[in-house]
Design a protein around this nucleic acid. Structure first.
Length: 580
DNA sequence: GGGCCCGCAGGG
DNA sequence: CCCTGCGGGCCC
């Protein structure tokens, strides 16, 4: 039988009676009153009633651990490294990387050693060194099935063919002419494929940082959110997302660093804002375009959106109280019900937040206070407000009535100044209200103690010291067979002419590849000095059905083109082009 | 200004 | 496959 607290009027939700004061217990955590007689295990001593925690709050959080990281052994091992005082920070980082790459590089005979070496960080710089020169000018990402023009510029095969399909015969980057032979029969630059892959795999082995994630079919999407013909009404109400510009995986925790921002190479900065949730999604700050919590119940939560739409929320800028999702009746077509009509539970995304609380993961926060614009969200649109940690989570009866909601205390923990701390918004410092959970958090702050964050005295800020778990779905991990193909191609590439940048990479990689040679035909790719002009063209979208034979094809399965009829797409950015 | 309906995307 | 979700424009 479920145990229930008292409602707002003090009546026990189980026996319906209003218990006398001596039979009422107040939870030391959430402050909710309970009827002692209706508890399955009431406290036995008077002393224990003083420090009593209700069934909702005292319930042990399951020892949930990230599923892909290898479980508690791995975490224990990492903790051991962190605790080892004989190691410098750099040593620790190195050891963590070794640990993680050793886990992910499973049984790979002679490749194992190399895998660990490349995890050391050298290769991470290689791709970076190549810079944007490698990127496809259309989709601004590393090319998929790259083709290289005689002038030395690289494009995705798909993007290139679309370009050609529009009758263009000049390089989209430098306007040099494209030979008819290449236009009619573009060939994959397989040595470039290899170089990109190897660089990616090296990056992905770098435990948590520098991972690059490519959204499937991303290059087919337009710059902005778009609607299809099937969407009866116009505007973004029924829009699908536009292209994702950043290369973090969807389950990436914490800030979005520059290396995952191939477009601007600056990362997503605190205070950046976007027109709406769809645009915010394109920059990776918060992926769901309706839901407020991005997270997985067995893994953690990556981000939350504050819109001011929940009565129970309190936004104080540096900290805020957040209400979980659910508990509202959204059945039928009425999707705007703001009244709680049943209890929220720690499941799904609410559970994801609880995992992040327990593990101490950083949570990105975006604000978009539409209804009640506040000092903390003064502008229209959606703003990225940096990284918070969840100091505490609990359940309590919501202010609306007798239904329980999940609540979370978020506390700002990065050291970048938030917009509201500037003079412009001059609303800090302000007296903090006297609520128990905040008191606890501020005390922890003052004592510089936190369950899962460390206070960095040197920099004077809180830092999240635990390494993030490996990504759930990194699509950029190669299987052993692919890897061998790649090695062969690299050998072969040795005798072919490729971009100068690519040559450099291969040169460096070559030093590590001492095993047997095995020649292989490589598609031709020519090189020339590179020109500097910029193209403003976008990646036009038409439906290509080509499946050109390719030497080494990416293992990604093209995701079902979910009900998305590209031919009927009408993004604003495309109206000028020759779309039918 | 609120109700309503539409849509996509993601979790499970 | 089903369900849910701190969007968003339009219609009344």
């Amino acid at each position: 039988m479920a145990q229930l607290p008292c409602d707002n009027d003090g009546a026990c939700l189980r026996c319906k009676a209003k218990p006398p004061q001596e039979e009422t217990l107040t939870c030391g955590t959430c402050g909710t009153p309970w009827h002692a007689a209706c508890l399955s295990s009431p406290p036995e001593t008077l002393a224990s009633t003083l420090q009593w925690h209700c069934p909702d709050c005292s319930g042990e959080i399951d020892p949930l651990l990230p599923v892909s990281g290898g479980g508690s052994d791995l975490v224990a091992a990492i903790r051991a490294i962190e605790a080892d005082e004989s190691l410098t920070d750099a040593d620790k980082a190195k050891k963590r990387q070794e640990l993680l790459s050793g886990k992910s590089a499973t049984d790979e005979d002679d490749d194992e050693e190399e895998g660990k070496k490349s995890a050391g960080g050298l290769d991470v710089d290689l791709l970076k060194a190549l810079g944007e020169n490698l990127n496809c000018s259309f989709c601004i990402q590393l090319p998929e099935r790259p083709v290289t023009t005689p002038c030395g510029h690289n494009f995705c095969l798909k993007c290139f063919e679309k370009w050609i399909g529009q009758g263009k015969r000049t390089c989209a980057k430098c306007r040099s002419s494209i030979p008819p032979k290449m236009a009619s029969n573009p060939r994959i630059n397989s040595s470039l494929v290899s170089a990109i892959r190897l660089a990616r795999v090296s990056k992905s082995a770098g435990a948590g940082t520098g991972k690059v994630f490519h959204f499937i079919s991303n290059q087919d999407r337009p710059d902005k959110a778009f609607t299809t013909e099937r969407a009866k009404k116009t505007g973004k109400a029924n829009a699908a997302s536009g292209r994702i510009y950043v290369t973090i995986p969807p389950d990436h925790f914490g800030p979005i660093p520059a290396e995952n921002d191939p477009v601007r190479n600056q990362g997503v900065l605190v205070g950046e804002s976007w027109e709406d949730r769809l645009e915010c999604r394109q920059w990776g700050a918060h992926f769901p375009h309706v839901a407020g919590i991005a997270g997985q119940s067995n893994y953690g939560a990556q981000s939350v959106a504050l819109s001011g739409g929940y009565e129970d929320d309190e936004d104080h800028g540096e900290w805020f109280l957040y209400t979980g999702s659910g508990g509202r009746d959204l059945s039928g077509n009425k999707r705007t019900n703001k009244d709680q009509s049943f209890d929220q539970k720690f499941e799904k995304s609410n559970e994801a937040l609880r995992v992040s609380c327990k593990m101490g993961y950083p949570v990105r926060v975006v604000r978009s206070h539409k209804e009640k614009r506040s000092a903390y969200a003064p502008e229209a649109g959606v703003r990225y407000d940096g990284v918070y940690r969840i100091e505490k989570c609990w359940r309590k009866v919501g202010i609306q009535g007798s239904f329980k909601v999940c609540r979370y205390l978020f506390v700002r923990c990065d050291n970048e100044p938030a917009p509201w701390t500037s003079d412009e918004h001059g609303d800090r410092p302000r007296p903090l209200p006297n609520i128990p959970e905040l008191k606890m958090a501020t005390e922890l702050f003052e004592r510089k103690e936190s369950p899962s964050w460390n206070f960095d005295e040197g920099e004077g800020c809180w830092k999240w010291m635990k390494p993030p778990p490996a990504s759930l779905k990194a699509v950029n991990v190669l299987d052993p067979e692919e890897r061998k193909t790649m090695k062969r191609a690299i050998k072969a590439a040795h005798s072919n002419s490729v971009n100068r940048e690519v040559m450099e990479v291969i040169e460096k990689l070559k030093n590590k590849e001492e095993d047997k040679a095995e020649s292989e035909e490589v598609e031709d790719a020519s090189m020339e000095e590179k020109a500097e002009s910029e193209s403003e063209e976008n990646c036009e979208t038409t439906e290509p059905e080509e499946e050109t034979p390719v030497v080494t094809e990416e293992a990604e399965q093209p995701r079902k083109r979910a009900k998305l009829d590209i031919d009927t797409v009408v993004p604003a950015t495309m109206l000028e082009s020759g779309m039918k």
